[in-house]
Design a protein around this nucleic acid. Structure first.
Lengths: 214, 214
DNA sequence: TAGATTGTTAATCGATTAACAATC
DNA sequence: TAGATTGTTAATCGATTAACAATC
């Protein structure tokens, strides 16, 4: 990595990716930053600046080749690779994610799910049996797990952290309502649903929070 | 509303709220911006600037009263009010949220859930029967619904939009993978899980995205 | 060629951080 | 009172937007 790219830019990439996917679906082959900016409700300048962090994907007088740009962003986001993924916490959210996210189709190999609750252990989700969390260290030793999805109560999440660190997990998708303390080589992406609902609550009570793109 | 407060500030409030809740649990009565900043890994300056958007909650030489500040933020976020909430989409994510979010306890009255799928219709989630989505317009006429949680595929989400607009819903918590076009008086909070997973994927492949607080 | 649109530099805007007088 | 820490102004930093020469 040469120049560090701001997280604000990174977080816009999936949105570009989504819009480009829609364009492909609609058979559109090329698009200018201006046209895309109107669709997405951002400035054309921002689109060009964002993309030029990663390369020169357009052509003067022409614009961008949709399919080509789509693939570039796919690669930038690392979606051309595959990852081994486990879910820790087999309750509502854990199960829902396993069923809903289409992990396999997206290159995220869902290979394990763990819980403490005896009622859940032994159940099968998407063909994967819920194991007792006691088996996690052993599992991590035997498998090369890239991503751990944490869908358990915050106390349990904190307690489990050393095990996943020890086990060589590289990234954490954290749904538990706590900021995890992790070594600097493990990356985290937080999904704090409660925070999001509170933000909605704020917006409901204060005018003028309509057009924001987050 | 006099001065518009930036969304960046708003989105930090739930995090302050969470840390203050933890302090209360631990019996801590007062805290300085400096101490809180160290716990939260932000600058003391930012904390004071953020809070002073809403009022002067601290005291020179003393710091902030934890419980008082907690209550202030609660009110700022509108968590002292109650909201009527329905879920549209009774599949995995919809059910998981109903079961997991403790809506009732937080002042969000979960009063309805709807789906198109005959297999789901008639099931009961948290004491609420899943209704056929055809019954939604009628339901909205009879009930004062503040929030609609959208947990359905993007095409269905787009299709349903006019109905919830017509029905007087004030805010949308949108889990579907699409940017909804809504009139300017309806607020939206998006939770794009797929985007989040892509961001994690990016971070996994690029060093230096560790300490970011999102 | 003429028109369109990029990539990129410069200007602006906003958000974060630093500094410090006010004061508990 | 002396020390601590706020609220707030000023300085800095970074991100967004505007402008335009390059060029397809």
């Amino acid at each position: 990595m040469e120049k560090k790219i701001s997280l604000a830019v990174i977080k816009r990439l999936p949105r570009y990716y989504r819009y480009l996917g829609d364009l492909i679906e609609n058979g559109i082959r090329r698009i200018s930053s201006k046209d895309l900016s109107e669709k997405m409700n951002v400035t054309a300048s921002q689109i060009r600046q964002d993309l030029n962090n990663f390369g020169c994907f357009g052509q003067q007088g022409y614009g961008y080749n949709v399919e080509l740009l789509y693939d570039e962003i796919k690669n930038i986001l690392g979606l051309n690779k595959t990852y081994n993924l486990i879910i820790i916490g087999g309750g509502n959210i854990g199960q829902a994610l396993a069923n809903y996210m289409n992990f396999q189709k997206r290159g995220f190999n869902f290979i394990g799910i763990f819980d403490v609750n005896p009622r859940l252990i032994g159940m099968t989700i998407r063909g994967i049996e819920i194991y007792d969390i006691d088996k996690l260290p052993e599992f991590l030793r035997r498998n090369n797990v890239d991503i751990a999805v944490l869908t358990l109560p915050k106390n349990n999440a904190v307690r489990i952290t050393p095990i996943i660190v020890e086990g060589g997990v590289k990234g954490v998708w954290n749904f538990s309502h706590v900021d995890l303390k992790l070594p600097s080589d493990i990356v985290v992406e937080n999904v704090h649903l409660t925070d999001s609902l509170m933000t909605l609550s704020y917006k409901l009570n204060n005018e003028g929070y309509t057009d924001d793109i987050e």
